[in-house]
Design a protein around this nucleic acid. Structure first.
Lengths: 419, 419
DNA sequence: GCTATTTGTTCAGTGGTTGAATTAAATGGC
DNA sequence: GCCATTTAATTCAACCACTGAACAAATAGC
């Protein structure tokens, strides 16, 4: 049966569990694999040893385990100047375990497979209005995509080690979707609905564990995956609602209870228009999709998210005055809200994702202007604003990447289950 | 010579160092000591073993080390029902290592000593306007307080294991005070200025290490120390500027570069009055000390922070209309800014600290009202707003507590240096 | 071809946990 | 009052994983 977990928040060292004897090896597996994963070029055993302070003997033993577990392969001997026996480089295996990423959104389903090296090895998107469907029917369609993803993975010699499902809503620690307003879901027990499906309980012992998580969080992780260079940033997903994913030092920040990131209801002007949440002047009333469409004269069009952004981009590209004004106003409001976040959390990069990625050429300037004005440390080091590297597939890729990431940070889980 | 470190941000597991052979014991020392520190009542060795999954044999060995290192003592056998040999309880030693907390602020100096159990064993505050003094002169006065604190600690059988200095400004990772506007400090190398002083380099091998940190951060830690029940909260320090300390799961959140918490420049109304930072409508222009004083008709009084809050409280208590209105307006603005933070970070407790603690009876209602209106999850679980448990001494206590906390989370540092 | 050099492996040694057996100290039934 | 029972803590041989040094492998330079 598929087991379910939920990505844990960053916990302090004091709450960490006890260290058993075997934990030593577990931890060193993670340390060595982490070095191999983050190194610029395939490192040798000796280089890892001198970097980490471990003995070459220990590193060799650990690497043997990693190779036996299909997590690492030896690369071609890298040309090196000077004397000495040539090193054998180590890199992540491209044909070992892989992660399955799934997404249910308002107007599409998506599935993708990401291997250990971060390559997207399979990707499929299915456009359809999911709102009329029951959760069970929507998930049944998703399972079809998951089945094809599994087949594609098998054909490429990959073993799916876990799956993560992105949902646009609040998800609790057990994978229960508390509320996904734009899908019309409420208290949907996704793991229970997906429990029996063969596409998700397959070849690996125990089958791929399923994680359910918020779409904005996973989109931020997808961005981290696509551009591993920036380890800390704020990822803003502009869809019908506005979500934020906060990535710090390569890890997703989840807040105290895991429901962080409600950027859409950060106040922009306390005397502003009333929001559907009941308050006044939330960011969503200025920069939410409906607000932008209304300001551009497209009210009531009820377009799916992706189409709406493209439509606005087309109009703006054609020089439509009302659209340009609407985007500038939205960008300014977004900049005000985001500069509050940046002042508070001391970030230096803001990524415009979701529908905002498409609209970035018009949103970026006003957002950047507000940040330059309002961020206290902007004088020291300016805040970068850029469009997301991935499109709408970002959340699925981020979900698959989180599975892979989990293997890399805790390889013992994968190695242990191989027996 | 006094060595200097800076409290580290929470880092992900992947960046953790390699695990050497001895690390096993190091980690288990921390695990066992952590259990003893956080337990409600003195736990027995057997209880720790079954809680952590370690063997009773291992726990006994670890506890022996902790007792030998004066970190733990055996408590009186606790009365227990049923048969069996009575357990010997374990609790933190009250006469082992202790932390020294220091603070330089605009109108006072403070020093305090906190023992392992969290008890404040010594406290001294010296009121004086520090602004006319050079950094060197101010620190020279502080050293006098530190010397008396050391004497008091010695008399009580405590060994100072480290010191933390709170400064109202931006501090970098080396203890360099980049900018403390209200003190008039800029690029002050505090560790260098304090290096030679005997009060800070004393009986312990290597002397107490000195950490320099931001006052708002440490005040939040002080609050955590005083009320360990709430592990996640936002601590707002209202002084001349407005700082925020974010505590998550018992750990201080520092942001990407360690300069988080600039709540004072979170926008409240983008079209509001111009702030001294150059932007418009920052929280500081509504709820900063000067703004409240001006609105209450006390502009230009140039009162020290502590006095100003007390003066306003007196006037409000006497029913002064202008003051009551000023406080309500400030509270509303504060509530708007804080609800943005709470939406973003999903916190459930807000603590009013610094000068706001004195004014809490008048600030709390409007802040709570805004939070109830604006926080999305408020319907599920309401956000608590309360005054800080500690007064102005909070930062010094928090600093001393951070020294103690460091010993508890990494006891090997203390045990190692005893040789 | 020989030496210097660097990589990777082998192997005895050691630190620290493991698990079972043992001792210690109390309760409760008879 | 004595003994079986129960729980706490210690002791000790076994074992796991890291350590450090010696050794084998592979290359460049002379």
């Amino acid at each position: 049966m598929a087991t379910v977990w939920h990505c844990q928040a960053v916990t302090s060292a004091s709450t960490a569990g006890a260290v058993r004897q075997g934990s030593l090896r577990e931890l060193n597996l993670a340390v060595v694999l982490g070095r191999i994963a983050t190194a610029d070029r395939p490192p040798s055993r000796a280089a890892i040893a001198s970097d980490t302070g471990l003995t070459r003997a220990t590193v060799s033993a650990v690497v043997d385990d990693l190779i036996a577990g299909r997590l690492v392969v030896e690369a071609e001997p890298e040309p090196r100047a000077g004397a000495g026996r040539p090193a054998r480089g180590l890199r992540l295996a491209g044909d070992g375990p892989a992660g399955l990423g799934l997404e249910v959104n308002v107007d599409y389903l998506a599935a993708c497979v990401v291997d250990l090296t971060g390559q997207v090895r399979h990707h499929e998107m299915h456009r359809a209005d999911l709102r009329p469907l029951s959760p069970g029917d929507a998930l049944a369609r998703l399972v079809e995509l998951a089945g094809r993803a599994r087949t594609a993975a098998d054909r490429q010699g990959l073993t799916l080690a876990g799956a993560t499902l992105a949902v646009p809503g609040l998800v609790d620690a057990h994978g229960l979707v508390r509320l996904a307003p734009n899908l019309g879901w409420r208290e949907v027990d996704v793991p229970a609905l997906l429990a029996g499906h063969p596409a998700l309980t397959g070849t690996v012992a125990d089958g791929p564990a399923l994680t359910v998580d918020n779409e904005a969080n996973l989109a931020a992780l997808g961005e981290l995956h696509a551009t591993p260079g920036t380890a800390s940033f704020l990822h803003v997903s502009g869809e019908i609602g506005i979500g934020a994913g906060i990535v710090l030092d390569g890890a997703l920040f989840r807040g105290a209870r895991g429901w962080s990131g409600e950027l859409g209801h950060v106040p922009v002007d306390p005397a502003g228009p009333r929001c559907r949440c009941g308050a006044r002047g939330c960011l969503e009333t200025y920069a939410g999709q409906e607000a932008i469409l209304a300001a551009a004269g497209l009210a009531g069009a009820d377009l799916p998210a992706d189409t709406a952004a493209r439509r606005l981009a087309d109009l703006a590209g054609a020089g439509d005055r009302a659209t340009l004004d609407a985007l500038r106003a939205a960008g300014t409001a977004l900049g005000v809200a985001v500069s509050g976040v940046v002042n508070l959390l001391d970030l230096d990069t803001v990524v415009l994702g979701g529908g905002y990625a498409t609209l970035a050429p018009w949103l970026r300037p006003p957002v950047a202007a507000e940040l330059a004005d309002r961020v206290l440390t902007a004088a020291w080091s300016p805040v970068t604003v850029r469009a997301a590297a991935l499109g709408p597939e970002s959340a699925a890729v981020g979900g698959a990447g989180s599975v892979v990431r989990r293997i890399i940070t805790r390889p013992s889980g994968w190695l242990g289950r191989r027996e």
